[in-house]
Simulated assay, not measured.
Amino acid sequence: MTDRLSIGQLRKLQSLSHVARRGPGKMRVDELLDDVRALDDPEIVGVTSKAALVCALDI
């Protein structure tokens, strides 16, 4: 993801650090994407959605 997003976009994602503190398996993908959509950056949403889908499908 770091190669597809700017430093500013990565900093926006960093504002969601509360998600990591919830622990693995404690948040559904749709909940994560709702938080990402709230950042109001379509490119972040696209990159994060793709990464979440790959992780969820374990491919």
Rank of each mutant, 00 (worst) to 15 (best):
V45W: 01
Q9V: 04
M1P: 08
I59L: 14
V47T: 08
R22N: 11
V45R: 01
D3L: 11
L39I: 07
L57A: 06
R37V: 08
A38P: 03
G25K: 03
L53C: 05
V47S: 04
R4L: 13
D35Y: 12
D41G: 06
I7V: 15
R4C: 03
T48D: 00
C55S: 13
R4T: 03
L16E: 05
R37H: 12
S17F: 12
L10A: 08
I59D: 05
D3S: 13
I44K: 00
G25I: 04
R37T: 05
L53W: 05
D30R: 04
I44M: 02
K50F: 07
R4H: 08
D30K: 11
I44E: 00
S6E: 05
A51C: 05
G23V: 01
P42I: 03
D40K: 14
G46K: 08
C55P: 01
K26E: 12
D58C: 02
V19M: 11
A56R: 12
L10G: 06
S49L: 14
L16S: 03
L32M: 13
L32A: 06
R28D: 07
V29L: 12
V19Y: 01
S49A: 15
M27C: 09
A56L: 14
G46E: 14
I7Y: 06
Q9W: 04
A52I: 00
K26G: 13
I7N: 09
A38Y: 06
D35H: 14
S6K: 12
L57N: 03
T48M: 04
P42C: 06
S17G: 15
L39M: 09
R28H: 13
V19L: 15
V47R: 00
V29E: 02
D41P: 02
A20K: 06
K50N: 10
A56M: 11
D40Y: 09
C55G: 04
G23A: 04
A38S: 14
L10H: 11
L57I: 06
V47G: 05
I59C: 09
L57T: 03
K12G: 03
C55V: 05
K12S: 10
L32E: 02
R37C: 07
Q14D: 15
V29I: 14
L39Q: 01
L33W: 02
S49M: 11
D30T: 11
V47P: 00
E31G: 10
R37I: 05
R22S: 11
L39F: 06
I7W: 05
G25C: 06
A56V: 11
R22D: 07
A56K: 09
T2K: 15
V47Y: 01
R37A: 08
V47Q: 01
A51P: 01
I7D: 14
P24G: 09
T48E: 01
K26D: 07
L13T: 03
A51V: 08
L5H: 02
M27A: 06
L39S: 02
Q9C: 04
D30A: 08
V36E: 00
A52N: 00
I44T: 01
K12R: 12
